[in-house]
Amino acid sequence: MNNAARLWLLAVILLALACAAAAAPHNDVEQAGETQIQAAGETPDTTAEIHDGHDAAAAGAHEEHYELPNFMMYIHAFNREAIDRWLAGINANLPPLLHITWLNIENLTYCLIVIALISAIAITGTRRRALRPTSRLYIFLENLAIGLHDFFAQVLGSETRKYIAFVGTLFVYILCLNLFGLIPLMKSPTSVWGINFAMALCVFLYVQYTAVVRNGFLGYVKHLVGEPWWLFPLMVPLHIIEELIKPISLSLRLFGNILGEDTLLAVFAGLIVLIPGVLNLPLQFPFMFLAILFSTIQALIFSTLAAVYIALMLPHEEHAT
């Protein structure tokens, strides 16, 4: 179990690279229209009215839905002209699909902060390994690794050791990303579809790779054809669509849950300001427990489903599909 933390570290770095590669174009499709409008000379005052009275009003004027303020928003709000000029200078040399917006930088910053935190904890925790450990951090990490191993053993069975590095990393990483939104001035990067889709794409590619490696190419084709082979004109497109839908549903589930939860928190936090004097209570407080619960469950579901997809592709006796 000692190697688990090292493997986590490696996989987290790989995931970060994948996020960096995939997050930029996806967010841009949504944001491109708005930035063009702003560039055309219309000031973003119309959207600012909606957020009036909200603490994030000045910072998040270009946002289209409620969101709790985060510190990257404030950086943008205080240096708006300089940052916009800088981004425009970068975007001038790029093709339209790869245009960078401040939102991309924001989300990737939080991803990198989370990755740095996890990496730092993993490195410092596992530096001094011993049979009878004295460091509490090491004991915690070892318990975490053993707990995850035991949990995923229910799905993966005897193959757990081979795939725990990937699915365990996914669990820890997504859990930290989800919970990051509960810290003041921070944000959950998983409330953006691009980040989730990058992770789901990793799962998809890894599952296909595992299937080809473990079954051989012929076994992979046999899996696509299905049981009665003469039904292949029907079954092959069906199976291909099934495989392609998996990453989309995986990422949309996480995205919708975290976005909904963050919006809920922001709306109830906004109510405090909207009704001044009467209710100076932290109205969003009860929903933070809900948010903790949802964050954990969604991280669990994402990684469990990744494990299930891997397990379905393995040459098992109890082959489900």
Partner: peptide, 20 residues
Amino acid sequence: QTAMIIGAAFIEALTIYALV
């Protein structure tokens, strides 16, 4: 419990599509 959570996730995803 594991099977139930996975099944519930699949069912819940349908609402999430509507939410998205």
